[in-house]
């Protein structure tokens, strides 16, 4: 029996050591990626302490919508699209806080829509933050929503096992071996498909203050950052964004500016053709003073 328990203890010890080893290896790789696999990892790995002229935040309705390459080329600016899929106001706030630890920024644009009333982390968007959950400012935000974040933070390697399909071995492997699309086009991710079926969007955000958006506003005031909110185009929008207009400073609703069906990949996302047109509209609206 003694021998058996010795061996069981040895197996447990090996497992624990491997958990710590893998935890360190994975976390290091997400902080220092060769090819960042998420926007969060990209921001975390930024080392140049330069100043950005602008940064864009939001969900997939922002990543596929504004191409900073066009703006930067036209205006000679230095801006990035830091939006990522399913990002809610909480993730926007965390992205901004993370960026400000790495760089200075003069102006930010936040895409808002029906997700304005979301308070908690999005189940998909939160995964990008898991490698960095040991950072106090991230953990303190997340833990208020669920106890699971305590286990994800404290049990070594647990977060990489739980979300293995997104941040597991495959992702780590590509981190070193495959060129990433995350930081191409200054963060813009083009979509080339054309919408076939569509359904009108009837969202109507409620006029209730979002604490994360309020904090974004406060942070911008504190750092002297110019802040603009906007809503990206939707096909056949039949909802009502008046609450956003009432609640947010410097808000601009671009919902109906792109009407051509061929410029959408689905009813809430424009494709690359649409993005070219919309980026120009966006640039003319916000950077008219700088356009030569």
């Amino acid at each position: 029996m003694k021998r058996f328990f010795k061996i069981v203890s040895f197996y447990i010890l090996i497992t624990i050591l491997l958990l710590f080893l893998l935890e360190s290896l994975f976390t290091y790789s997400y902080y220092h990626p060769k090819n960042p696999r998420s926007k969060v990892s990209w921001i975390m790995s930024m080392t140049d302490k330069d100043t950005l002229d602008y940064a864009l935040f939001g969900s997939s309705r922002c990543i596929h919508t504004i191409n900073p390459t066009i703006i930067n080329k036209e205006l000679g600016t230095n801006g990035l699209n830091l939006a990522y899929q399913a990002s809610n106001p909480l993730e926007v706030k965390l992205s901004l806080k993370t960026l400000l630890k790495k760089k200075r920024v003069k102006r930010i644009f936040v895409q808002v829509d029906y997700s304005y009333n979301q308070h908690g982390p999005h189940p998909l968007a939160e995964i990008a933050w898991m490698p960095f959950i040991k950072e106090d400012y991230i953990y303190n935000e997340l833990k208020t929503y669920d106890d699971k974040y305590t286990y994800l933070k404290r049990i070594p390697f647990y977060r990489y096992m739980k979300y293995d399909s997104k941040i597991g071995f495959r992702d780590l492997f590509f981190n070193y071996t495959k060129k990433s699309a995350v930081n191409e086009h200054y963060g813009y991710a083009p979509k080339y498909t054309v919408m076939k079926k569509y359904k009108a969007n009837t969202s109507k955000p409620k006029a209730i203050e979002n604490p994360h958006i309020k904090e974004v506003i406060d942070i911008c005031k504190e750092y002297g950052i110019k802040l603009d909110f906007f809503t990206a185009p939707m096909y056949l929008f039949q909802g009502d964004n008046s609450a956003l207009r009432d609640m947010l400073p410097n808000y601009k609703d671009f919902t109906t500016v792109i009407k051509d069906k061929k410029k959408y990949q689905d009813n809430t996302h424009i494709n690359d053709e649409g993005a070219k047109e919309f980026t120009k509209i966006f640039m003319n609206h916000y950077f008219s003073d700088s356009i030569k």
Binding site: Y11, L19, L22, M161, Y163, D164, K166, F169
Partner: peptide, 17 residues
């Protein structure tokens, strides 16, 4: 073999599905 199997279980196991 035991070490390799434990390692692969942790690294390559499918826990999300």
């Amino acid at each position: 073999k035991t070490f390799v199997i434990i390692f692969m279980l942790l690294l390559l196991g499918n826990y999300s599905n």
